[in-house]
Design a protein around this nucleic acid. Structure first.
Lengths: 224, 224
DNA sequence: TCAATAGTGTCTGTTAGACATTATGGA
DNA sequence: TCCATAATGTCTAACAGACACTATTGA
């Protein structure tokens, strides 16, 4: 991860790459060949070519071979909290890859459920929490849930993903009604049979233009 | 704005400080005594003491004499877009001050309605757009509208602020009902008479703990 | 056949938006 | 008095949540 090519900068790009594993978010961590027990978020000291996001994309590609399906900057971290590098500040990015993406081989990278994380550098720990919060915050602005799913999926899988991200159970009929009203998915002609029970139809993400008017103002500040 | 004290860093902290002027957001810009026509967002090359947010707070205090009522990081900007400094990256912050805050005197600082901005450095222009978007995005997580109002305000003023931030008209009765349900304000025993019409009661921001359960899932992705 | 899961129709309590009405000041 | 604005009550269409029901597979 240390300086790779070109001239050195005085800041790092760090990436929190998430996927869904069963009923939890999982984050991709990296360890050096030397210190097999010290895990960290993958990071690099960027070269001068390209944008910050380009740099984050390179980190993801180096780890998984494929670009993330969604990538966004979280923010910069510069408190005195420690970082593997000795740079003053670090710019954190958050990325998503679909569930079922082949895991990286070799042992340098591994997925960790966010509930079972190893010890991380303080600044990385802080980044990770912010990154997860960013994903949840972006849910109703970006099709985040879809970016964590493969190209086709059942409505049950989609609902499970929403429940995972929202951290609460949803009502099946209401969820599907809302989904129809939002014109976010379209059915394919494939069905998937899984164990017992009626097969489920597969859908794909296909947003359509919609009535911009939606009902209701919510003044739902959580009183923090 | 250039290097102020302590050791120099290789990045800048830039601040987009907003207030409400009539029916528009306004942003605080700064110009050097030498170049009276080149306006920019106030910025500094931070010293090593304190957090990034501390640095942003210092910028605001230097400009207005008072700390902002709300301050949050937007993100880091590092594209090749130009910046008054020659640093590789800049960390943008967004701050709010109540409408009616005494404007800075002397001519180095001035409020500009976001609809009538002078030419800015490309990176500053980008920061400003992101900062305004951040304010609107945080609306339903933080009491942003209240931070743009003085300590006491009429419900009409509050509704106007929401309309300004949301960019659309709201229904008066519905707005007040939602406000009551959210337990965000409490009445004072003062009334303000303004021109003609019945005087309006003054309220203050006083959030109470609330039922965390709220009705409804919205799958309201705007199909971008 | 039963069990399990997918998908759908109907009912009901809640509520956003519309409208009307009252209240209270200035001109 | 008339007008303008604040504040509030009532009605209605829309909708979230609940429940029940049908559909379709494997065991």
């Amino acid at each position: 991860m240390p300086e790779r090519r070109g001239r050195k900068s005085s800041y790092t790009i760090d990436l929190a790459l998430f996927t869904a594993v069963k009923d939890q978010l999982a984050v991709l961590l990296w360890r050096t060949p030397e210190e097999k027990e010290k895990w960290s978020l993958p990071w690099e000291i960027p070269t001068s070519d390209g944008t910050l996001a380009d740099s984050a994309g390179r980190i993801a590609a180096a780890a998984l071979g494929v670009p993330p399906s969604w990538l966004e900057q979280v923010c910069a971290f510069g408190d005195e909290k420690r970082h593997p590098s000795e740079t003053e500040i670090s710019v954190a990015f958050v990325g998503l890859v679909p569930a079922g993406t082949p895991p990286p081989v070799g042992g340098a990278y591994a997925w960790f459920p966010v509930g079972e994380l190893p010890t991380l550098a303080p600044r990385h720990r802080e980044m990770l929490d912010s990154a997860a919060a960013t994903v949840r915050l972006r849910m109703d602005n970006s099709p985040v849930a879809f970016k964590l799913l493969p190209a086709t999926f059942t409505l049950g899988e989609l609902q499970h993903m929403y429940e995972l991200l929202l951290g609460k159970r949803l009502h099946k009929a209401s969820f599907r009604r809302a989904l129809q009203a939002a014109w976010l998915v379209e059915p394919t002609d494939e069905w998937r049979t899984e164990g017992r029970g009626r097969p489920a139809q597969l859908f794909r993400y296909a947003p359509r233009k919609r009535r911009p008017a939606q009902r209701g103002i919510r003044l739902d500040l959580l009183t923090s």
